[in-house]
Structure formats: C-alpha cells, structure tokens
Design a binder for these strands. Structure first.
Length: 519
RNA sequence: GGCGCUUUCGUCUAGCGGCUAGGACACAUGCCUCUCACGCAUGGAACACGGGUUCGAUUCCCGUAGGCGCUACCA
C-alpha cells in the first residue's frame, strides 16, 4: 500500500465555469502530485445529464492551461485508465451496481420523487434508512415477482445503498485527523438512476477512484459529511485495503459578510471569481476572469495556494517549483478563509514588478491599439520603462476617491495617456495645479521656454547641462509647473525623461498651450 | 431541527505548555523626492466566552456562543 505510486485527481462537473475554489483544489492536487512524483488525473463528472453546460469542459481545460497546472492523464490528456468522462463509463458502473445488488448490499427502490416529497412533508425529518425502508416500495418489501414486473413494465427505479445502522464509521483525514460519524445518521443513498442509466456521484466516485488507482482524495470540505458513506462503499466492494487517503480542504468564504464565496460577491465587489472570462451560453451573461482582468497566472496560483496553506515560515512569494517543494497537507488550515481580493491584487502587483519589460509590452500594445494610438515599438518600450515603477491609479472607493497601487497592466492607460496625448484642459481646482501654478508662473515658464529653445541636444543629459545652471542662477524651480504643462497633473516620470521622450517641439508646444490656457 | 467541521490583529496566518503572541495585506505617520508612485522606517491592531487539567495555558480536555458545511434520483 505504501509503495503505491501517488495518483490524485481533479474531477469537476461541467456545469459552468470553474470556480476559483475549484482552482485551488486542483492546484493543491497538482502540488501534491508533483512533490511525490505522482500523477494528476483530469476526470469529468457528468453524471447529472440535466445540468450539463456546453463549453464548460473546454473552458476548464483552457483555464488550467493558462494557469500552468498540468495534468498527466484524463479527458483530452490521454492515459491508460480511460474513458475519463463518466458519461462514457455506463457499462462499468452497471456491473458494479449489480455486484452490490447481488451481495445484498444495495436494493432497488420504486418510490417516485413525488412520493418521497409527500413523505417528507408528512413525516418530520424523514430519512430513507433502516428505520423507514420497510415502509417504502422497494425490493426489500415487495415480492420478487412484483419487482421483476415493475422493472419489465418500464417503471423507473433507483438503486439504494443499504446502510447498516449503529456503527461508528471512522475517516482518517490527513488534515482533520480522526472524524467519526455514526452510520445511523446516514441515509440509504441513491447510487444509480434508471432514468438516465447513470450512477450518482457517490458510486461513480468510488468506482472510478478505485479503477484509476487513486491514492489520495484531496477535495473540498463540503464532502466531509459524505466521506463515511464513501468508506462504507469501499468496504462493501471489498476494496478497503487500497482505499485512498482523504484530505478535506477548508472552504473559500465571502470577503465580507457570511457564507461561501459566490459569483455574486465578485460582481458586487468588483473582482473575478473565475479564472477566465465566461460567456454563459444560455443567458448570454458575461462573467469576468482573472486572465482578462490582467492577472498573471503565477500570481493567481501563488495567492490561491496561500489561502488555506502556508509553508510554516514568513515566505509569501513563491514560484511554482518552490510551492511544489514546500507544500504540505498537514500544514493546511482547518477553517474557511475569507477571500481577500485586495491581497490578490498585491500579489499581482509584486509579480508585475518582477516581470521583465518585454513582457509588459504586448499588453501595453493592446491598450494603445484600443485607444487608437499609433506609436513605435521603441517608444512603447520607453514608456513601459518609465511607467513600470511609477504607476498609480485613482479608483472610486465607497464615497471618496481613494488611491491605490496599480496592480494590472490593463489599468495603465489613464496614467500614461499624456505620453501620447497632450493635455487639453486643466483642472484649476486640482490641488497640485493650484499649489504650483501661481501668478508669476506664466512668466517663469516663458523664460524657461527661452532657455529650452537654446538646447540642441534634448536628451536627459543635454537638458541637464543647460537647465541645472539656469535654475541655480535664476532661483526658479520650474519642475512642478513644467509638469503641469506636459502632463496636466501631478504625476508621471522624471521631467527630463519625459521631455526627452516628447522631444523639443512637442515639449515647447505643450508649454505654450498651458501658458495660454492657465494664464 | 439533526450531524459534522471550525474559532489568534479588519483580512490571510505563524505558534504545536513558559514568547514583550511573529509576519503579510489593508490603514496611519515619517523619510526619500521636481509630482505621483516605488522603496525604506515607524505605529495602532488579535488569542470568542466559561469551566477544568497543570507549578504554569493562546496551546490539552469539556461545555457555551459564533462561523461554515452537509442533510436531493446535484456534484
């Protein structure tokens, strides 16, 4: 058992875009598999035919590709244990359901959903289990000829797991330790539906994990209550000796208020809850994605990894390789983590600053194109260089304007517009302009223009050689007013650099315009 | 309601019987400076509550309260 090769899986349902919590679960599985030199399997759990959403499967695959989470086998990746789409494994499940039926560990039930609903209304806290199954219409209460007849007449039925009551079932969880649940509180779970000839999650999950030789099940905490059921299922099949180890991860919670993270929270607070942008095929609704928002995949992985796990020291910035080396299920926290999207932005900021200039350029190029700016690669590279460490963004907070670091390349345009477009209007109420454009300023700028006109070499060095002595001599400190002329506000790079970028002609023309407009 | 999981600064967390309870995000202040930012420095800020166990509990046990999850012919 201990010498089995580590094999883990991520098995989403194709019911929509991949939730960010699912991404974290997949990431942990990936880190775990890599660390142990094992395999990561990608399985599609599409046993609920009514909830299938076209495009979801492709979306999920693309999302992992973007994130850099690689699978070793599974849907679209190949492998020896296929098929990896549960809807294509009907015959396999049927065989195992029959095995349980033959062993008397499961039974056939004919109660319709309507009958069950009625029962639930009639009896408070009704549960289909050892205490009630004798009152229901199933193969335990009906004569076998009657059962045969109902089936042959085409009546729909389900197969239920026959749970023996009164036993303490232990789940040895890698994160939570020994978890005990008494089998009496478990209901006789539906394992198979005749309507679509498909199993439910519980049965398919156990059969597939066994057949695919999965050694560790790392999944969300929402599965913890049904883990004892799964243990019982392994036992019923006689697979207890190769039963995977379980690890139930804490959930991702809303940033504010109570409850688990949902798509609504993202809409309300303005952050994505999906890795990629998603276009709902039914409603046409578009949900934003981390990729489109300007996040770097490494930043997303790094941030997500730390939501529920940490290496036990103060290190927060980690490459994927470092995370693979340091990851440890026993260091995962047990309680749910509120999703801190502000810190997510900080992570992205960190990765953005580390990024070489060339990597910024394609993104930046896109912005310029949408703004209709015609430029040259050299000029763009120059702007990226100047902007990289100097970007800020003013976003609307609740009520007041609030300053924030730029964390996304896509937010850059309002902050670097002046490189390409001359200021056309000046906000006289602006604090910076009020403070730095006084009565004497226009005259000073006129004098400054005369000085600039004498400069032939308009490079940074060339400007300094002339301007520095002049400021010394005249006592005029032109920079802030000059900034108003060229930028229109109190932001931007070093003035000499900016002037050099714009060139002598453009610099002088902007100054002329500002003097005329501001007076 | 029942069952299970969980509880350290506003948030993510370190801590695995004895610590001035550490870090990061956010916030505030200062420094740097031709602006904004970056960077650097400093600061405020937490062991849910009540019982035990112990020489000693943030740490172990039991309650209470709060939070979360499950309770489908969904996963």
């Amino acid at each position: 058992m201990e010498d089995r090769k580590v094999r883990v899986r991520f098995a989403p349902s194709p019911t929509g875009p991949l939730h960010i919590g699912g991404v974290r679960t997949a990431l942990y599985n990936y880190l775990f598999a890599r660390q142990h030199g094992g395999d990561l399997i990608f399985r599609i759990e599409d046993t609920d035919s009514t909830r299938f959403v076209p495009g979801a499967e492709e979306y999920i695959i693309e999302a992992f590709h973007w994130l850099g989470i690689k699978f070793d086998e599974g849907v679209s990746f190949g492998g020896e244990h296929g098929p990896y789409r549960q809807s294509e494994r009907r015959d396999i499940y049927k065989k195992y359901v029959q095995q349980l039926l033959d062993a008397g560990k499961a039974y056939i039930a004919f109660d319709t959903p309507e009958e069950l609903d009625a029962k639930r209304k009639e009896v408070e806290n009704f549960q289909y289990d050892a205490s009630t199954r004798n009152m229901m219409r199933n193969s335990l209460t009906l004569p076998s000829e009657e059962v045969e007849r109902l089936i042959s007449e085409g009546n729909q039925y389900v197969v239920r797991f026959k749970i023996e009551p009164g036993e303490d079932v232990h789940v040895d969880d890698l994160i939570r330790g020994d978890v005990v649940i008494n089998s009496s509180i478990l209901d006789d779970k539906v394992l198979f539906k005749s309507a679509d000839q498909l199993p439910t999650y519980h049965l398919a999950n156990i059969v597939d994990d066994h057949l695919m030789e999965v050694t560790h099940v790392i999944r969300g905490e929402e599965w913890l209550p049904s883990a004892p059921l799964h243990v019982l299922l392994y036992r019923a099949f006689g697979w207890e000796d190769t039963m995977p180890r379980f690890a139930h991860l804490p959930l991702l919670l809303k940033p504010v208020g109570n409850g688990k993270l949902s798509k609504r929270d993202g809409d309300k607070l303005g952050f994505p809850v999906f890795p990629l942008e998603w276009h709902d095929p039914k409603t046409g609704e578009v949900s934003s994605g981390y990729r489109e928002r300007g996040y770097l995949p490494q930043a997303v992985c790094n941030f997500l990894a730390l939501l529920g796990w940490n290496p036990g020291n103060d290190q927060e910035l980690m490459t994927m390789d470092e995370m693979i080396r340091l990851f440890d299920l026993s260091k995962c926290s047990k309680n749910g983590a509120k999703f801190d999207y502000v810190k997510a932005a900080w992570f992205n900021h960190q990765y953005l600053l580390q990024l070489p200039d060339e990597a910024w350029t394609p993104e930046f190029d896109k912005i310029l194109r949408t703004e209709g700016i015609v430029s040259t690669p050299e000029k763009e590279a120059e702007v990226v260089r100047m902007m990289k460490l100097k970007v800020i963004e003013y976003v609307d907070g609740e009520g007041n304007k609030k300053k924030r670091n730029v964390s996304f390349v896509s937010d850059l345009w309002p902050l670097c517009k002046f490189f390409f477009v001359a200021p056309s209007a000046f906000d006289k109420e602006d604090k910076f302009i009020r403070k730095n454009w006084r009565e004497a300023t226009a005259d000073e700028m006129r004098k400054f223009i005369e000085v600039l006109k004498t400069i032939d070499d308009f490079s940074v060095e060339g400007q300094k050689a002339v301007i520095d002595p002049w400021t010394e001599e005249s006592g005029i400190r032109p920079w802030n007013a000059w900034r108003i002329c060229l930028v229109g506000a109190g932001q931007g790079p070093d003035m000499y650099e900016l002037a050099a970028f714009l060139g002598k002609e453009e610099t002088l023309s902007r100054m002329q315009y500002a003097i005329e407009t501001l007076g």
